[in-house]
């Protein structure tokens, strides 16, 4: 009914967080940033703002396509109150229940998968740092 709204809300929060962390990282001068905003590929440590962008992209992408599905099923309309379920209390209660169950589960699973990506990237980062350190040692 409106389960995508939970992920969309998390996407908004993540977008704001990315902007704030990027600003902090840039002002700290801890990382090398190219003029086009991308980071150099040879960087052994991935900045956290870049990792957070993975979550932001997953959430926005998923929410966008799910919003289309809701338009397809007539659950989202281009006129007020935009959600057909919001027009009467019984449907609104059902919608809120769906948001609290399916919507929250969606946002949680996306976040858990992102955490898994962080774990994998940490292993890759460690391996890259080891490879970088080896020639100096040898």
């Amino acid at each position: 009914m409106a389960c995508f709204l939970v992920s969309a809300a998390e996407a908004i929060i993540t977008t704001v967080a990315v902007k704030m962390i990027e600003k902090k990282e840039n002002s700290a001068g801890a990382i090398k940033v190219r003029p086009d905003g991308e980071y150099t590929e040879t960087e052994a440590k991935i900045p956290f703002s870049r990792k957070l962008k993975w979550l932001r992209n997953l959430l926005w992408g998923g929410s966008l396509l799910l919003a289309f599905e809701h338009v397809w099923h007539g659950e989202v309309v281009p006129w007020f109150p935009f959600l057909t379920a919001a027009s009467n209390p019984a449907d609104a209660a059902e919608m809120l229940h769906e948001m609290a169950t399916v919507g929250v589960a969606m946002a949680v699973l996306v976040t858990v998968i992102w955490l898994g990506m962080l774990a994998v990237s940490a292993v890759i980062e460690k391996r890259a740092q080891k490879e970088k350190a080896l020639p100096a040692e040898g």
Binding site: C3, F4, S7, W54, N57, L58, L59, W60, G61, G62, S63, L64, L65, L66, T101, V102, A105, M106, L109, V110, I113
Partner: peptide
């Protein structure tokens, strides 16, 4: 990739329910 994987994860949850 981001768009389709994001949607796939969300629809997977929908499918489980």
């Amino acid at each position: 990739c981001w768009m389709f994987w994001g949607a796939s994860i969300m629809w997977f949850v929908d499918a489980v329910f």
